[in-house]
Design a protein around this nucleic acid. Sequence first.
DNA 1: GTCTATATGCGGATAGAC
DNA 2: GTCTATCCGCATATAGAC
Lengths: 222, 222
Amino acid sequence: MASDTKDRILDVAEALFADHGFAATSLRDITHDAGVNIAAVNYHFGSKDSLLAAVLERRIGPVNRQRLIMLDEAEAAAGEAGATIDALARALLSPPFRQCLVGERGPVKFQQLAGRIHAEPHAHARAILLAQFGEITRRFVPAFRKALPHLSEDEAGWRLLFVVGAMAHTMMSPHMFELCGGRQPDDSEELLEALVQFVVAGLKAPAAARTSRTSPTAGAVA
Amino acid sequence: MASDTKDRILDVAEALFADHGFAATSLRDITHDAGVNIAAVNYHFGSKDSLLAAVLERRIGPVNRQRLIMLDEAEAAAGEAGATIDALARALLSPPFRQCLVGERGPVKFQQLAGRIHAEPHAHARAILLAQFGEITRRFVPAFRKALPHLSEDEAGWRLLFVVGAMAHTMMSPHMFELCGGRQPDDSEELLEALVQFVVAGLKAPAAARTSRTSPTAGAVA
DNA sequence: GTCTATATGCGGATAGAC
DNA sequence: GTCTATCCGCATATAGAC
């Protein structure tokens, strides 16, 4: 069956891109693991680049739709006051974490891939991300700014960057847990709670004082 | 001169690995940009893998030494009480940011590379990181735990992961700034202050309540 | 839709002259 | 130490039979 082949390729590609990165994964690796012929990739997707696009789009779309649904709910519930930081953080972070509970084969690997792709230099990948995240940025940045009126525009943007960084890195487990000496959580939900707790507090922090006093030890290293 | 060739290769490799990733950068690209012969890489470094190791080690060593110096200072200044979160965060984050001010050609690119390499799946790269960060983890984790006694061992480890994620992502600018709609800072110091402010507040957050109530909209997406 | 066979180019690494 | 020339394997992509 055609769709079976196509889905098997997508699933295996997702897993291998997540494990080894895009450039280091060959179509031969993918088709071998999927048990399909090498020519099938080109028949169904046209090229390796297009395959990556298909892998990404299959998952990012639903996650981002869910984010916007939760954002709408949070804003509706809060009325004039605007959504709380906690609600905004959950709207942004919980959909990608939750998705790993949906299926059996793919989504858990996509969590890793999503984390990795944020750092991937591949032009196609970044273009896809940019396109898919356009609306997310457009909706979330003003919502965060409304909830964080004490921050300058720049600092609000940077804090969002910190949040995304913490999220992306966390989603790249297990590569990351060994670095920090932490235990891998049995429960994705537990890790999500810890992350939300962290970023909410970080977002609520007072604006940074512009003290650029240099540390006494700066430059003391060879 | 021999050392000139070697350094030029290191500088160019650092820049290209940072821009395109390890797997996507060929030795031909590197030697072309450096204006040296293709065979020079193998003569001076032995292999592409060893070149990567050399690129990483040249920068990580000094940064991590500086981190340990600042950690020692912070602990000495605080005495029995243990270092403050603020001092620990600065000891961890400021050396890699500061290094971008040291030279002209290389270090600014290394900031990007360091961010990227955290996400790179390449086995050699991760082994090098693990080796170089062994002592950092060994010293910083207990210090953070002492300063954060209200957290479980797991949660303290995870928060460190969040901190490293926010740092790594931030250091990968400019790739990242376009995603979040933020302005690129003119001053690295300004961005560092914002990051410290954010992570200190996040680290100090109360322990996460174990409420795993599922959101009403979970699973509502196609 | 699926396969085999193959075109074509780029990759890392090396041999050996200078 | 630096160069040219080359080995050899793997990469993506395609042509064309079934």
